[in-house]
C-alpha cells in the first residue's frame, strides 16, 4: 500500500497538470497508472515571514482548502504551493498538528462518498509527508458528503463541496 501511495504521489507531483477531470462517471484509481520522475517537492516555498503566518491573509498558509475536479482526487497544480507551504510549516513547527478533512459532493452513496473523501485527504497527506511534514503531525479523515460548504445541486454548489480542508489543532 505504501509503495502504491509513493508512486501515486510522484505521479501527482509530476503529471497532474494533464490529469484534470476523470472521464469515467465514477472515481477510479487511474491517477497512479503512469508516472515520470523529477518533481522536486521542496522547490516550492511559501517564504513565510509574517508574525502569524497561519492567519496572515498575505500568506499562502491562510488558505486552507484544496478543490477538486469532478470524480478526481488529484491535487491540481494551482493548489500544490498551498499544500507544500503547509507541509513546510509543519516541518518547521514540529509541535503543530493538522487534521485534513476530505469532502465530496452529494451524489451517490454516503458511505462510498466517505471513502472518496478519505482518498482526497490521504492524497494531501501524502504530498505533505513527501514535503517534510511528519506523518504523526497529520490525521487525514473524511466527512464525505455530510458537511457541504454550498447547498443545492448543480456544478456551482458541487464544485465547492469537492475539497480537502486543512485544520490546525487548537485553532
Amino acid at each position: 500500500m505504501k509503495k502504491i501511495a509513493g508512486v501515486l504521489i510522484i505521479s501527482l507531483l509530476s503529471a497532474c497538470a494533464s490529469q484534470t477531470t476523470q472521464p469515467t462517471d465514477v472515481e477510479d484509481r487511474s491517477t497512479g497508472a503512469d508516472s515520470s520522475y523529477g518533481a522536486d517537492s521542496s522547490a516550492l516555498s511559501s517564504g513565510g515571514s509574517g508574525f502569524h503566518p497561519l492567519n496572515d491573509p498575505n500568506s499562502v498558509l491562510s488558505q486552507r482548502s484544496v478543490y477538486y475536479d469532478f470524480d478526481s482526487y488529484t491535487v491540481k497544480n494551482e493548489y500544490r504551493p498551498l499544500v507544500i507551504a503547509h507541509a513546510q510549516y509543519l516541518r518547521d513547527n514540529p509541535n503543530a498538528q493538522v487534521i485534513l478533512q476530505g469532502n465530496t459532493d452529494d451524489r451517490g452513496s454516503r458511505e462510498y462518498n466517505l471513502a472518496l473523501g478519505q482518498r482526497r485527504a490521504d492524497g494531501v497527506k501524502n504530498i505533505m509527508t513527501l514535503s517534510g511534514a511528519r506523518a504523526s503531525q497529520i490525521e487525514s479523515v473524511s466527512l464525505g458528503e455530510e458537511k457541504p460548504r454550498a447547498y443545492g445541486s448543480g456544478e456551482s454548489a458541487w464544485s465547492q463541496n469537492r475539497r480537502t480542508d486543512i485544520l490546525y489543532r487548537g485553532e
Binding site: M1, A5, E111, L114, A115, Q118, V141
Partner: peptide, 9 residues
C-alpha cells in the same frame, strides 16, 4: 467496520 487506519478505506 471500515477504517482508514492503515491507508485507504
Amino acid at each position: 467496520v471500515v477504517l482508514s487506519l492503515h491507508g485507504g478505506s
